[in-house]
């Protein structure tokens, strides 16, 4: 408990936590104005059906773009201690390295969840105001709930990488290069294989798993609103495939489990390396 209280104070006595909230809020507000813009630009009379609310879909896609901030926040919160050499003091005053590790991972999860909530709140507010068509409340809430969980998990992954690498710049490079570039390259390689089984592996990558988890419910809900003679059979899954680039994506729950396993891997690496590291 002492370690957690200390980590909370540590996190909220510097600017990082709210500085990262600024781009998160702005991007989410801009991106979720899309439904309203779309409604204004497209002549609704040309479409045989009423345009459904785009908010759950646009919010889910926004969250997938912003989840990197949760990972970055977790990484900085954990690895910043190595950069500023405060880790020495941290280990001297806490009751053990295990307590420090646990507290840091929990704080990273909380910070990630906070970012997910703020992004959802800002985006939902703009989306609800901008578009006349209102979303199904359950769809929107499920999107937000899954998004917050995915943000929390990515916060933990970031902190885990930070503690495992033990160097802020190195850990940030690992997280950012993987999330922004690395996973795309691996996905393309997997999707270009001839075997469907290999194609399906793309759904087991951590970034894709989080994306699929967040997008699946709003995509299915959106597809249900379109008459099946227009959308065709299995439109929900096709929409998820189109939005995430994953072949035969697993369900939302399975995808969350996949991301949880990756999170556990990061935590394991963090426990292994941070328990043995010489602080010189």
């Amino acid at each position: 408990m002492n370690a957690i209280k200390s980590e909370v104070r540590k996190t909220f006595t510097t600017k990082m936590w709210w500085a990262l909230l600024i781009p998160i809020t702005l991007i989410s507000m801009l991106a979720n104005a899309f439904g309203g813009l779309f409604e204004n630009v497209v002549d609704v009379g040309d479409i045989p059906v009423a345009l459904p609310s785009l908010l759950p879909i646009s919010l889910s896609l926004t969250l997938n773009q912003l989840v990197v901030f949760a990972a970055v926040a977790g990484t900085i919160a954990a690895a910043g201690e190595f950069r500023h050499r405060t880790i020495t003091t941290t280990y001297l005053v806490n009751s053990g390295r295990g307590a420090v590790l646990t507290a840091k991972l929990l704080i990273a999860a909380a910070l990630g969840a906070l970012y997910g909530l703020v992004a959802s709140a800002a985006g939902s507010m703009v989306g609800l105001l901008a578009q006349e068509a209102k979303p199904d409340a359950a769809d929107l809430l499920v999107t937000i709930l899954v998004g917050v969980v995915v943000f929390a998990l990515w916060g933990v992954v970031g902190a885990g990488v930070g503690l495992a690498v033990g160097n802020q710049v190195g850990a940030l490079l690992v997280v950012l290069i993987y999330l922004l570039v690395g996973e795309q390259i691996i996905s393309v390689a997997l999707l270009n294989a001839d075997s469907v089984a290999v194609n399906e592996l793309s759904g087991y990558l951590p970034g894709n798993a989080g994306d699929v988890a967040v997008v699946t419910e709003p995509a299915r809900g959106f597809a249900e609103l379109i008459p099946s003679e227009v959308a065709g059979e299995n439109a929900g899954n096709q929409l998820v495939e189109a939005l995430t680039g994953v072949t035969n994506p697993p369900s939302s729950v399975v995808s969350l489990l996949i991301l949880s396993v990756w999170t556990a891997v990061a935590v394991g690496l963090a426990a292994f390396f941070s328990g043995r590291r010489d602080i010189t």
């Binding site: 370690a3 006595t13 510097t14 500023h84 050499r85």
Partner: peptide, 22 residues
């Protein structure tokens, strides 16, 4: 080479430590 976060105040630095120590 014991470090401090440059933008944390002295009191807050000690509050972080005090919480950890209990």
């Amino acid at each position: 080479a014991q470090g401090f976060h440059p933008s944390r105040t002295a009191r807050n630095h000690l509050r972080v430590c005090a919480a950890a120590i209990g």
